[in-house]
């Protein structure tokens, strides 16, 4: 069952990657990256159980959960405000121009 889960997770990662490659907008890519990070976290945890060293692998997965969230919010902050929140910024966003 663990093997099946691993294969399914790899397949889902491939699907998310497909979405990231296809786009079409930046938001689709951010969404794909976020979904990808969730799946990577699950994959790392499952790998830990497969190898039998789950104690160490879970620590990394936990860290990824938190770092992935911070990264997503940072990305969205840039897409919405055009920078990382330096004061005096205007709300003209790079993301407003639709992506080709």
């Amino acid at each position: 069952m663990l093997t099946l889960t691993l294969l399914v997770l790899l397949g889902s990662m491939a699907l998310a990657l497909l979405r990231a490659v296809k786009g079409p907008t930046v938001y689709d890519r951010i969404l794909a990256a976020n979904a990808f990070s969730t799946k990577t976290v699950l994959l790392i945890t499952a790998l830990g159980f497969l190898v039998g060293e789950a104690e160490y692998y879970v620590d990394i997965a936990l860290m990824y959960t938190l770092v992935g969230f911070i990264a997503t919010v940072a990305v969205l902050k840039v897409s919405e405000f055009g920078n990382l929140g330096q004061s005096g910024a205007v709300r003209s966003t790079p993301a407003e121009r639709p992506n080709k």
Binding site: L17, R29, L47, Y57, I60
Partner: peptide, 19 residues
């Protein structure tokens, strides 16, 4: 911007490979 998103996926994958 899209390239940065690809890079973040790349680094997630790299980490999974390392693991």
């Amino acid at each position: 911007f899209a390239v940065v998103m690809m890079f973040s996926i790349y680094s997630l994958l790299a980490a999974a490979v390392f693991v």
